[in-house]
């Protein structure tokens, strides 16, 4: 088992009028190489779940295990050695005033912590590796290694972030609507890159999306969250038989209310 979450609870602003039960008894198991998508309306607890896995906060109750190791109380920066993460905002995952090469070398720190001292610099061999990896993006970035990342487009920056998150194969990759802020063509390109990288190295991956079509076609498993619970978990035959409509129906049944998210409805219509 690569990821095992058991009985996770998190309440924000406990005891005030703004009390929000963000996670309520969330349990989830993922095999190594599992690729699951997560859907759910805003405030369902998807991002909170990601934050809990990354260690942005320590849960009120429950435990998180990654590759057999209990990481519930491990600090965020230690966890991020084995967890790759992409945000919705393409500008968040990179440092704008640093060059492409410098950004990549920071991502590479994860692997090289034991092999390099604090005072080592980027070696020629690493530069070659970075160039090689960049060329896989097919964006010509390998010839702009000395440019500040701030000069790149949002799509290029998100592709670069993807590369940084996976350069050293993570045990778990968390994608938080990472193509939502990109234009359709760029979004597709970044998504293709994601699919290729994840399948080529069989990375265990969780992806939040508001696109119902993506939720059913990407990966092997679809999760749905609502009000801090996982209300649906389908895979295999059951998932193959599902359409966007049945998924929406299941949601309504599971949550007991209409799934009123414009973005969801919009994308379910346009993406087919």
């Amino acid at each position: 088992m690569m990821l095992r979450i058991e009985g996770l609870y998190k309440t924000f602003n406990e005891g005030t009028v703004n009390e929000k039960k963000a996670l309520e008894n969330v349990s989830l198991e993922m095999e190594a190489g599992d690729f699951a998508t997560i859907v759910g309306s805003n405030g369902a607890g998807k991002s909170t779940l990601f934050n809990a896995i990354c260690g942005s906060f320590i849960p009120d109750a429950g435990s998180i295990e990654l590759d057999g190791e209990d990481i519930t109380f491990v600090p965020e920066h230690t966890r991020s050695r084995s967890i790759g993460r992409l945000f919705q905002d393409p500008l968040m995952g990179t440092a704008p005033h640093m060059t492409i090469e410098e950004n990549l070398s920071i991502a590479y720190l994860r692997a090289s912590r034991s092999r390099h001292s604090y005072f080592s610099r980027i070696t020629a061999k690493e530069k070659e590796l970075f160039r090689e990896q960049l060329s896989l993006l097919c964006m010509g970035l390998e010839d702009r290694m000395d440019s500040p990342v701030g000069l790149l487009s949002g799509g290029q920056r998100q592709a670069l972030t993807l590369l940084m998150a996976t350069m050293v194969t993570p045990k778990l990759l968390l994608l938080d609507e990472h193509t939502a802020a990109l234009d359709p063509a760029t979004a597709e390109k970044v998504l293709d890159l994601t699919k290729n990288i994840v399948s080529a190295r069989s990375i265990t991956c969780l992806m939040i999306t508001h696109n119902m079509n993506q939720a059913l076609t990407l990966g092997k498993r679809t999760l749905m969250m609502d009000g801090g619970h996982i209300v649906l978990d389908v895979s295999g035959e059951e998932r193959r038989g599902m359409t966007v409509e049945t998924l929406l129906e299941r949601f309504a049944a599971g949550a007991g209310e209409k799934f009123d998210n414009d973005r969801v409805l919009l994308s379910s219509r346009t993406e087919k």
Binding site: E76, F87, M92, N103, A107
Partner: peptide
Amino acid sequence: DSPAMVRASSI
């Protein structure tokens, strides 16, 4: 330069 990036990397 980028607090979010730092959180996502191992720094």
